[in-house]
Design a protein around this nucleic acid. Structure first.
Length: 573
DNA sequence: GCCGTTTTCGGCCCGACTGTTTTCAGTCG
């Protein structure tokens, strides 16, 4: 798939052109193409071969030609022309807070700054502060931006940011004059990683709230502090900072502001275009006809006036949500009846079958499956055939003595490097369900990861594929899987695909989940819990499924036990 | 560069904060 490298190429082109003071509209056109390619789940080369590139949103003749050129030659000549104008390290500096294209161009032209090292040098020498348009304050800001980038590193995973945001919201709730606090931004949309935390608060006294916010105990640094807006960083772990923005609005504008600061940016641009067409104006204070506010107290009021469905935050990405007649009822935690991928002390879990059963019952589930590791997963204390046979008896015995929740016998069976399974069919047949997962030789197995997984799916006892791409956010890239092929095979064999809810995994990711749903594939959302404390992380998986437009019908473990069993039996024949 | 039941040309979302500004440009979200 060339989608990702192509997206990066257009992003770089946009950066270069922006530094080169090209038309902002042209720059934005390329950024839009880059974002589209980043989220596009089909192979763009296929669309190119079929001559339908210009049917895709934001792609016209000029961009289509560049994509064709990239496919043919592996490069885009316009980008090479632009790269000849600036040092290679210059565009990266755009990522530093406080540094935009204009300042960057001035730094390059006047001082020859071409990268991070040059930037440090001109800051230290004092040369930067002497430049027109720069001063002691802006240099200090750039310097802090440079440090912040080093300290905050990459984006923060959703699962880490959410509890931080929730506790920060509690802090703000205790400030006098605060009526209401909500999470907005990419966190509310359930993005898998977030850049910063956006919080919104209702109050009549903005200055007092912002003051209390920027001065409270946990604050590491204050980035901005005005009458309605404050921006701080907190230290999440030694040497690592996370930015938190707070906006304060009055009650009449709360819905408008919540909508506005939830985004996504692309979704909002579309929404505002709708307002403009009706001769109205939409901003964070409301929807206005001239000076008169005609909506804004709630999000729903705005969408209603504009005649578009008020869709859940998770699908506000300008990816088709405006074409819906009604907002869809996406899957929610309450729909799930069980967790079908968990581990116990039999392999590498920290809790016993009985402890897991009690916790799953407490979570309100009707059933859950024990799926310990198979024999090849030596690191995970995988079970030999003999141990597995005894383990099956243990689970059946636990099921007998447990009231109020059904315990299913399962296993997480390794997909070996040639695509064969780690247990013989007799063992698999003795289980109620089987998770098949790749744990070893993620790169360079005897067969490609796609072929291995497809071969596993052809086994009638394999109920679903666990964490299909094997990625670990920020740690390990996904296996080189052809998702189109995988999804087709899942549909053909009647195998479900897992959305693994662990925040390090979120695998399948949202775009792939949507691709699977479109192909008629059943999803299953599980925590892969190794301890009872992990069971609540199911909500991360649900959010990911929602971002993939999943409804309860698309997810296997929303079914009743009876319906679940009959679905499994159908594949077994 | 893209796009079009008001347009194939002339638009393209909108406001807060900051700093260097003498009335506003740059940056950010």
């Amino acid at each position: 798939m060339i989608n990702q490298p192509l997206a990066s190429a257009f992003e770089r082109l946009a950066d270069l052109m922006e530094i080169g003071a090209e038309s902002g509209f042209r720059v934005n056109a390329y950024r839009r193409v880059a974002r589209f390619l980043d989220a596009y789940t089909e192979d763009i080369a296929v669309a190119a071969a079929e001559k339908r590139l210009t049917d895709l949103p934001g792609i016209g003749q000029a961009t289509a030609q560049k994509i064709q050129e990239f496919i043919k030659t592996g490069k885009i000549s316009l980008i090479e022309q632009w790269e000849a104008k600036f040092p290679p390290g210059l565009p990266d500096l755009l990522k530093i807070q406080g540094l935009g294209p204009k300042k960057l161009a001035a730094m390059y032209e006047k001082l020859g700054v071409g990268g991070v090292d040059d930037l440090r040098r001109v800051i230290a020498s004092g040369a930067l502060a002497k430049l027109p348009g720069f001063g002691a304050q802006s240099v200090k800001r750039i310097e802090e931006g440079l440090q912040f980038r080093e300290r905050s590193g990459d984006r923060t995973p959703y699962g880490l940011a959410l509890p931080i945001a929730e506790s920060m919201a509690d802090v703000i709730r205790r400030i006098p004059a605060v009526k209401r606090v909500e999470i907005a931004g990419s966190l509310r949309r359930g993005a898998e990683t977030i850049g910063d935390v956006d919080l919104l608060c209702e109050s009549r006294d903005g200055p007092a709230v912002v003051k209390a916010f920027v001065e409270h105990d946990g604050v590491k640094r204050v980035l901005a502090s005005g009458d309605t807006k404050g921006s701080i960083t907190i230290e999440t772990e030694p040497g690592r900072e996370l930015q938190i923005d707070l906006r304060v609005v009055p009650a009449d504008s709360f819905g408008a502001a919540w909508q506005y600061f939830t985004g996504s940016k692309e979704h909002n641009v579309r929404l505002r275009e709708r307002a403009v067409k009706k001769k109205w104006r939409l901003n964070e204070y409301g929807l206005f006809d001239g000076e008169k506010q005609i909506a804004g107290k709630t999000e729903e009021s705005i969408y209603k006036k504009l005649g578009v469905p008020c869709v859940p935050p998770e699908i506000r990405e300008d990816a088709g949500e405006f074409d819906l007649g009604e907002p869809p009822e996406l899957i929610a935690v309450k729909h799930l009846r069980g967790d079908l991928h968990t581990h116990t002390t039999a392999s590498d879990g920290k809790n016993t079958i009985d402890e897991m059963a009690a916790a799953a019952k407490h979570a309100g589930y009707d059933y859950f499956a024990v799926t310990d590791h198979s024999r090849s997963s030596a690191i995970a204390n995988g079970l030999s055939i003999e141990r597995m046979t005894r383990h099956i008896d243990d689970i059946r015995a636990a099921e007998k003595r447990t009231k109020g929740i059904a315990i299913l016998v399962g296993c997480e069976c390794d997909i070996l490097s040639d695509g064969s399974l780690d247990y013989p069919d007799e063992i698999l047949a003795a289980c109620d369900l089987v998770v098949a997962s790749v744990h070893s030789a993620q790169r360079g197995g005897k067969a490609s990861p796609t072929q291995r997984t497809i071969k596993a799916m052809q086994n009638p006892y394999v109920t679903f594929i666990g964490h299909p791409t094997g990625r670990l956010l920020g740690k390990r890239p996904p296996m080189d899987i052809d998702m189109g092929e995988l999804v087709r095979a899942a549909a053909d064999t009647g195998t479900a695909l897992e959305i693994n809810a662990s925040w390090q995994r979120l695998d399948l990711k949202a775009e792939h989940a949507r691709q699977a749903i479109d192909a008629g594939v059943m999803l299953v959302i599980n925590t892969d819990s190794h301890r009872i404390a992990s069971l609540p992380s199911i909500r991360h998986g649900v959010v990911t499924a929602r971002r993939g437009w999943a409804t309860a019908e698309n997810v296997l473990n929303t079914r009743t036990l009876r319906s679940l069993k009959s679905w499994i039996a159908k594949k077994r024949g």
